[in-house]
């Protein structure tokens, strides 16, 4: 009762990184609250799945194993969570802000009439005094997220409803093994007690998963372009610089929305979070939702015609100039000096 739960996203037989990151965060929240950390694995052929998650400090792993539970479809997974949560009454439930988590989370929160906050960038425990009712609450989950297109940061609480649900994007939290020999219990549930046959109503008839086309998340150097790059062709130059530096190309949301590059290169709160040793921001003004996804880069270079671009305040080097002038010069002098 009253524990912290993490929904494990499982592709094939392997637990997604985002879920391991949430277990790491969930362990810390559970310690702070003085409760247990529990995880839920829903899928097919899950024997041994506990070995992937126990090292993150899981006290109890709930396993729901049935061929019909993989690949993921909404209603059976939602039925499992709703049924389990009615029994276990967790105080906190965390999920990845992935396609699966963002499909499943709202469905479950609606069924339980509990609050859900999407795409949190930080989770903390703290107290809350309601200014309207005068009631005080101890140890609520602060769900912190950029809102309004990333122009403000809001702290959301769910004072009266449980579980307090939140989704978090991959890469926002850090995964860290707690103890390779951590011992938790495994509870195998009878799926049929939770999921009536009628819930298997949507059929996946075809499915293609490609390996990620880029390695933006782990790239040591990122060359990123914004709306200021101007065009798809303008990005060619960034790809060339990236090739020279063995870097990956990233982009701001404005550049992605304008169709300059594919969506999977978007850096920021609604894209990928990166922490490279060097981030070269080309023609990016620096909306907060972008900065939230790259501010931890070790060294930041901003190339922008606007000397007062917001991103310049967090940059180590500010080059005031046109991207189409500066980037070719960088390529030229890199070639000249790196030999």
């Amino acid at each position: 009762m009253n524990n912290v739960f993490v929904y494990l996203e499982i592709e094939g037989q392997s637990v997604a990184d985002v879920s391991l990151e949430l277990l790491t965060k969930g362990r810390k929240l559970a310690d702070r609250l003085g409760v247990k950390l529990e995880a839920i694995a829903i899928g097919s052929k899950l024997d041994g799945i506990e070995r992937q998650v126990m090292p993150y400090g899981v006290d109890a792993l709930h396993v729901f194993d049935d061929p019909r539970l993989s690949p993921y479809t909404t209603q059976p997974h939602a039925a499992v969570l709703v049924g389990l949560f009615k029994e276990e009454k967790p105080q906190v439930c965390l999920m990845g802000a992935t396609v699966v988590g963002r499909d499943l989370g709202p469905r479950v929160s609606s069924a339980l009439k509990s609050g859900l906050t999407a795409d949190c960038t930080s989770l903390e425990i703290g107290d809350h005094d309601d200014p309207k009712t005068g009631k005080s609450y101890k140890d609520l989950l602060y769900q912190i997220r950029p809102a309004f297109g990333g122009n403000i940061i809001a702290t959301i609480v769910n004072p009266e409803h449980r579980p307090q649900m939140a989704t978090v994007r991959e890469g926002v939290m850090k995964k860290e093994i707690l103890d390779p020999d951590y011992k938790g219990t495994v509870v195998r549930h009878d799926v049929n007690e939770y999921v009536p046959d009628a819930e298997y109503i949507v059929k996946v008839i075809d499915r293609h998963i490609q390996k990620a086309k880029n390695n933006l998340k782990n790239a040591p150097i990122v060359v990123a372009g914004g709306y200021g790059v101007g065009s798809k062709e303008g990005f060619d130059m960034l790809f060339e610089l990236a090739r020279e530096l063995h870097a990956e190309v990233g982009a701001s949301r404005a550049a992605v929305d304008a169709g300059f590059v594919e969506h999977d290169r978007q850096v920021g709160q609604t894209g990928v979070t990166v922490r490279p040793k060097l981030y070269i921001a080309c023609g990016i003004s620096g909306q907060i939702q972008h900065l939230a996804g790259m501010q931890e880069s070790k060294i930041i270079i901003s190339i922008n015609t606007d000397p007062d671009a917001p991103i310049n305040t967090i940059a180590d080097y500010v080059v005031v100039g046109k991207v189409e002038d500066v980037v070719p010069k960088m390529i030229k002098y890199y070639k000249a000096h790196s030999k």
Partner: peptide, 28 residues
């Protein structure tokens, strides 16, 4: 069920940036 506890304009750690122009000399 969700209540907004606080809203802030976000501020990031500002750095002392090294500023330069896009001239050949500076970029080199």
């Amino acid at each position: 069920p969700t209540k907004v506890k606080a809203v802030i304009s976000i501020s990031f750690q500002t750095k002392d940036s090294k500023r330069m122009t896009g001239s050949d000399n500076d970029v080199e």
